[in-house]
Write a protein that binds this DNA or RNA. Structure first.
Lengths: 190, 190, 190, 190
DNA sequence: AATGAATGAGTATTCATTCAT
DNA sequence: TATGAATGAATACTCATTCAT
């Protein structure tokens, strides 16, 4: 008797992400996910109790992966600007390299799928970023504005930039990325 | 003889917007839309050939309304910064006051509903904004970055700010709005 | 205030016949009939209480017209064979010239539309033909077979011949018609 | 693992035939077919993509079965008349014993269901019969009329005879059948 | 009488989920 | 575990009929 196969879970996630990107949450069916993942419909239900659970699990997975990536290589002992730049770049890179996951997360809001628990759980993701911004304010680098407003400003400019690059099918160049960072930094700094 | 009732189209739009906000595109049914609009299912199909056409029409309508609002009170003969501020504020206000429409438009991307025609048609919406940014560059006020990057930066910071204000249920205060504008302006200016 | 317009009834019948031929009883809708007849859906219901009544009335009309035509120019005082030939030819001609009505009648059997009353009413249509065959037997011209079997044989060969001519799109030539009559006559005669 | 059940296809066909006879193609619904066949609505769609395909497949099946039966026990080496009689009787018997299928086929013409492909495919069914008639002419037994006219004459007299026997609820007696065959033979022979 | 918008029950079809193998 | 056929509730859409004008 085989045990649950981790590779299958991965296949299911990949299939779901790919299909959601192609047709949107509204247009994806369980049997389609199964077919794309190369398994039978029934098997899908061995791995996930139902569609709800599949989407919620995948959403949480995506959210967690994104947060985990944000502070990679961040070293609090280094000067603030370089640390901030690293985080900024991590966010940008994650969203470029995992655009499918970004789309899934966007589609999940306002969908009938996300449950209270998942929402609550993922709400805390901004905590470490919040701290980062506070440090910028503490070090007198950033404006004295509401911390949240600053954070949202930072996030927003990245999100929209990546989204636009994807849809206009013009990959972000080094120059554009630099420009984006400078705008963000100049906007936030005192 | 009964004539087609323009108010009904409005009711249908309102019902759809409200339901999409509540449950997302994925969870909205035609009969629910009809019920919410206070008409019979069949009546819905007198006004819109099918779900596809309803969504596409509503999407185009929302897009148009948003663009139309952006340049309200804009006077090209006035100094650049005050003109830019007016447009910036128009965008912000539109998205605050028409948050339901914003959500619909967001949900439509990656949905199986938007057809080529609608997408193409609405792609041109950024043209006037594009021109505005160019003016800022011509007048040597804005950075020498890619015009598109500047535009997306402006848009992004507004979008995310409004979205966040809505979900955190903290209405934007005058102070926060000022802070947002300042960040945007400082980010873009030379 | 206008009275019911006989021409409209005619237009409705024509529209129905044409549509039934094109798509079969199964595929014809009341609003389509109205549109084809050049009137509004509501108007159709002034002329016929409902779809049932429309179909039944049209069916009875077609049946009656066919019977009425069968004995045109028949003169009982003339020799039997020439009289029989006239009736035979009348049936053939009616079915050629009114193929649409033939199709409607065929489609009505086994449809949920024909009501008891209409069926009963049209069952008597064979009476005069029955008499004709009996005369043939009385005059010792026809076989001593069951009168009904003789009648059905006569009818059957005409029906199938016309149907085939229509579908194979080869109009019946004088020669073929003669051959058909000869087969029928030779088959029935002693 | 469950496998597709061939008996189910049979049940679906039987249910459809029975319902079409009762209410005509116009009045048969998919859920009724499913219920009568003793399966769930959804199951019906595992076996047939849609109503169209179900009807077309059943039509083709009926047509094929009828043709296959026509030359049972036919022995080309036996004298022509006895061979012809066997075919004639096979056709008669098939149509008596499979009256439901006959009705279905009749109803299908002029319905919106039959597709080009099915029509074309079933058009060739008359080929072997055509050959039989030609043999009759070659052996100088049949009239020198158009082969098609002869064939249609043969078919027509059988069709109408069976139809009438069914509707008048008087089963065909041996005597009537003999009379029918004699009329057919006498009509066709030189 | 004429119109065609409005109605809502009814129809084909889909799809999340279960179940027998 | 894995399979995919089976289920039936739900959904998009249609259509006979009614009704306000």
């Amino acid at each position: 008797m085989k045990l649950k196969d981790d590779r299958k879970t991965e296949q299911i996630f990949e299939a779901t992400l790919s299909l959601v990107n192609e047709k949107g949450l509204a247009g994806v069916t369980m049997s389609e996910i199964a077919r794309t993942a190369g398994i039978a419909t029934g098997t899908l239900y061995i791995y996930f109790k139902n569609k709800d659970e599949l989407i919620n699990t995948l959403f949480a997975e995506c959210r967690k992966a994104s947060i985990d990536s944000y502070f990679k290589n961040y070293d609090a002992s280094k000067p603030f600007k370089s640390g901030f730049a690293i985080v900024w770049m991590n966010i940008l890179q994650y969203r470029i390299q995992n655009f499918e996951k970004v789309v899934l997360m966007d589609q999940c809001y306002h969908s009938p799928f996300l449950n209270e628990c998942t929402i609550k759980m993922t709400k805390q993701w901004k905590q470490p970023l919040f701290k980062l911004i506070e440090r910028g304010k503490d070090e007198n680098v950033f404006k004295e504005a509401d911390t949240f407003a600053l954070l949202i400003f930072m996030i927003g400019s990245i999100h929209e930039g990546v989204k636009n690059a994807h849809y206009s099918q013009k990959p972000l160049t080094k120059a554009t990325i630099d420009a984006m960072f400078n705008m963000c930094w100049d906007g936030m700094k005192k």
